[in-house]
């Protein structure tokens, strides 16, 4: 593999078991290319924050290896940590410090010489420049969130971890955040974000990873994921109400609405034959007329919920199986 193909982040067989025996990460492997935006989705306690913390050096992995730009996070920690910026989930700040000083502190801590011009740019990009002399305690929650991003960007990292960046943030600020993330990607920064908000992943991510119970269930490009797992539905608005489905169209596995005015046909976009033509032919033969038709595709949220449910069912089955043995 040449230098161009070398992933900016490679996680190999990473596991973390806490002192109490809780397995937070189970044999996680993933590769992230330079300039990508990856969204890690997962319910609470899935292992998202532990994964980020292990990569950043806050949590010690029990086994496995992580490299950043080809450098090992344990052996070459100075090189890897200098490449990484982390925006934590909690709004943890030094309340009595000024905005500018705390950002300058972060830059120095990460081994970079003072650079007023860079800090000014970061603070201006995040609309914090006019607050630079204010004490952090006086900032609003949204501003504190932006300040944490500014701190993480102060040392010009190449990989940025955003742990639930828009948790508790209003809609307008969330959109601002998405804009910032997109601009950062344009400047060549690789972004890995965890989120509860599916629309966030849908809006900004190139690839989506789903974590549950410490395992990566799936990691796919967003479009491929939608195509692969997305189910489409054809909804027919009938001209006249049906009390029951005629036998002639029973083979199509249709759902009828309570008022009998809507038929819903679910099909797989990836299958060779969707069955739509046959359904329409059968409807015509049965004399069922419709006023309108439209199609809908399942959202990432539905895909996510299905995946997590399936994974949880598998885990419970495995646990029950083991218990039975």
């Amino acid at each position: 593999m040449n230098a161009v193909d070398e992933p900016i982040l490679r996680v190999s067989n990473l596991s973390k078991t806490y002192a109490g025996g809780f397995e937070a990460l189970k044999d996680i492997s993933l590769e992230i290319q330079k300039g990508e935006i990856i969204a890690l989705l997962g319910p609470n306690g899935a292992g998202k924050t532990t994964l980020i913390s292990a990569i950043c050096g806050i949590v010690r992995p029990s086994s496995g290896q992580v490299t950043v730009a080809g450098f090992d996070i344990a052996r070459d920690y100075r090189k890897t940590r200098a490449l990484i910026g982390l925006v934590p989930q909690e709004l943890t700040t030094d309340s009595f410090e000024s905005v500018y000083n705390t950002v300058a502190f972060s830059r120095g801590l990460f081994g970079r010489a003072p650079n007023h011009a860079h800090l000014e740019k970061v603070l201006k990009d995040l609309s914090l420049w006019d607050k630079k002399d204010n004490k952090i305690i006086t900032l609003s929650g949204g501003m504190k969130r932006r300040l944490l991003i500014a701190k993480a960007l102060a040392h010009e990292p190449r990989v940025l971890f955003l742990d639930e960046p828009t948790a508790g943030v209003d809609v307008s600020l969330r959109k601002d955040m998405w804009k910032i993330v997109k601009e950062l990607r344009e400047s060549g920064v690789t972004i890995i974000l965890t989120t509860h908000y599916i629309e966030e992943a849908e809006e900004i991510a190139d690839r989506v990873g789903v974590i549950n119970n410490g395992e990566i269930i799936l990691i796919e490009s967003k479009t491929a994921l939608m195509q692969k797992l997305g189910k489409k539905q054809l909804i027919l608005d009938l001209s006249e109400s049906l009390s029951a489905l005629p036998a002639a169209i029973n083979r199509h596995d249709l759902a009828i609405s309570d008022d009998g005015m809507k038929l819903t046909y679910t099909f797989d976009t990836q299958s060779e034959r969707t069955g739509i033509t046959a359904l329409l032919d059968d409807l015509k033969a049965a004399g069922i007329q419709f006023r309108d038709l439209n199609t809908t595709q399942s959202s990432l949220e539905e895909i996510f919920v299905n995946l997590v449910d399936e994974s949880s069912e598998k885990n419970s089955a495995a646990v029950n199986g083991a218990a039975a043995e």
């Binding site: 200098a82 990484i84 909690e90 801590l109």
Partner: peptide
């Protein structure tokens, strides 16, 4: 206050 994360993740 939790800001120790920065110290632990710094080079």
């Amino acid at each position: 206050v939790g800001t120790v994360y920065e110290l632990l993740s710094a080079p």
